[in-house]
Design a protein around this nucleic acid. Structure first.
Ligand SMILES: [Zn+2]
Ligand SMILES: [Zn+2]
Lengths: 369, 369
DNA sequence: CAGGCATGCCTG
DNA sequence: CAGGCATGCCTG
């Protein structure tokens, strides 16, 4: 990198002293850049939704809220039957866990988003935990898995496969009867069901007691459409409702798991987490526009030392008490130059320095406003 | 913009004189940037293909090449029947023209690529010209339109609609029988045909004599799938073969038209033309990486004057005979800063200055090598 | 598997 | 309609 070699702090002061005129329009455009970032008014709603989809840390069911006795809440106002998206452990403390080492698998889990990202036709192993100590040993219980859309606009629509993946010659359909189901359980005793009333598809699998030494029973699932499938899920986010049921289909507990089925689970997880964080952070929009250049996503470790020394340089500049205007000009120019260099050389570790420059500019503007 | 105000040429010289050390690694990395751009070895083949698809300027048929008597060339080696992609006007000088003012329509034509870009279900009016002066006035002739894949890998596959657009509830299919056809002619006497042997789909429309005062007869077509349709054309490029035929289906002439059916015809045209030009231009890769930042595609006219004065500034700098190394450093830094500014402020007219900086650096490197 | 592009679609 | 993003897929 050029900057730490190009000008030493003392040389820099020399230059800055020499700058007599400065453009006021620059200050204006920069002010615009660093102030116009308060637009995160829409973040609450989305957060609320994911609160409902908590997997690992199950919130206590709120006593003030009427308990859902069925997976379906009959919305009498419009006669539509909507699934209940609220988890409740119920009397047997029904819980859902993900294997700890998702990296060992073909999927990834975002704690921030409480969401699984998985490719089509890849195995997702889920661990079910329930308190069966007071039950007779021969009482058979079941887990029903039913994918549903999570957005308010789409909950009422039932989740089915897309026309393309439904084609008979599709490899996933060969030798399988229930091709309309987006979600399959690999357990051989799984029953594929279609609710007569709601037409919703689900699969029901016997939940055996955990094996000796284990607290959970594992069931493995696959998804045979992508969340993005055209004329199918069509990019609408989904969650899977898991219900603990007895042989009569009476429900005793419910858990939810948000799932995105996509071609690049890791990339999409990183991206969605970033989007989520940006909603709550200041400078969100700037960082977003900076990072939207293709090559900033991966993290390589080039130029680490020189970047550090650049940071030091910046501190020095600040401390040595330059004229505010020239200092500001310098910061803006450096900021631009870093962006340019980053893009030109595909640098991946300039986030820190760029952010630091932003912060310094921001502080400067606050101080002299 | 900051640069013309930030430093005058004389101030700049002052700075440059002050720079005692310069990093050699910078020169290296820049050398890499400006030399490593000779990779356009693959451009010829693609050009060859589009030569075959010439629409407006019809090349004389090469006498050295055996004339295709049928649209199908029987490739005896593998018994596959392939369509002939070579245009020939034939004895009636069969020609195909596009309306001059494509901007008035919902499609766009690229002269560079010789290709029509059009959205799904939009009208494409084509003008057919043929010399019928020696024919009896009541002889009925026809135009057959048959879409085919143009890549060598895919010519053998017949072009049909995708499963999604084939769905009966698709608006485009209501009240229309020949839903499998990707291409439709709006003329009411059009016959939709399926070749028994090749299973290829085409539509045949009577070609009336031009109306008084006109040299051409216009037929209007629509495409009811996108070139990108999954499990359909699947992003494989297509051309339409237009053949002049008599009532018996004997062919008298043939013309080709490359077509891309897509959601953003203008954007895709600009993009594909740019890709094509880059193949043949030096600095292709650099320009590409610069322009791949989202906001550089449209052309707005902000900062025109200040950019001009920046260009002047650069000339000055060069003329005043700075030390080559400091001058080079300056150029590189300016180059980076321009890139950064461009991205940060969504500037759209910095191409010139950036390219100019590249050129100056290139010349500098040649001179001092 | 990461980088990068192609391309549909959403938003202002 | 332009900017911008989402997301599949291709390539090394
Ligand atoms: Zn699908
Ligand atoms: Zn289609």
């Amino acid at each position: 990198m050029a900057f730490d070699d190009l000008l030493t702090p003392s040389e820099l002061r020399y230059v800055m002293d020499d700058i007599k005129n400065f453009p006021t329009n620059l200050v204006e455009s920069s002010a615009q850049l660093f102030n116009d970032t308060t637009d995160n008014s829409y973040s609450n709603q989305s957060l609320y939704e994911s609160d409902n989809l908590d997997v690992k840390v199950l919130p206590k069911r709120k006593k003030t809220r009427k308990m859902c006795d069925s997976t379906y809440e009959n919305v009498s106002s419009n006669l539509e039957i909507l699934p209940c998206l609220e988890p409740y452990p119920g009397q047997f403390d029904f819980q859902l866990q993900l294997p700890a080492d998702s990296s060992a698998h073909r999927w990834t889990y975002s704690k921030i988003l409480k969401k699984v990202f998985i490719d089509i036709d890849k195995v997702l192993a889920l661990q079910f935990k329930w308190n069966y100590s007071e039950l007779k040993p021969d009482t058979e219980f079941y887990v029903r898995a039913m994918p549903v859309y999570t957005s308010h606009d789409s909950v009422k629509i039932s989740v089915v496969r897309c026309p393309i993946h439904l084609l008979p010659d599709n490899a996933l359909n060969v030798g399988f009867r229930f091709v309309e189901h987006v979600m399959r359980c690999e357990h051989s005793s799984t029953t594929y069901m279609k609710d007569e009333l709601t037409k919703r598809l689900s699969c029901v699998t016997p939940l055996s007691r955990p094996q000796a030494g284990s607290e959970t029973t594992t069931l493995t699932y696959k998804f045979v459409c992508k969340t993005s499938c055209l004329s199918g899920m069509n990019r609408k986010p989904i969650s899977v409702i898991f219900t603990l049921e007895d042989a009569c289909g009476i429900e005793y507990g419910r858990q939810l798991l948000a799932v995105k089925i996509c071609s690049c689970p890791k990339r999409d997880k990183v991206k969605e987490e970033k989007n989520e964080l940006e909603k709550t952070q200041s400078y969100g929009r700037i960082l977003k526009s900076v990072d939207s250049t293709p090559n900033l996503i991966c993290v390589r470790n080039t130029n680490r030392e020189s970047l550090t020394s650049q940071s030091e340089l910046l501190k020095d500049i600040k401390i040595e008490g330059l004229n505010m205007v020239t200092y500001r000009l310098l910061l803006v120019t450096l900021y631009d130059a870093f962006l340019g260099k980053t893009i030109r050389c595909n640098l991946t570790d300039t986030d820190d320095i760029v952010h630091q420059l932003q912060t310094q500019l921001h502080e400067l503007d606050k101080k002299f406003k």
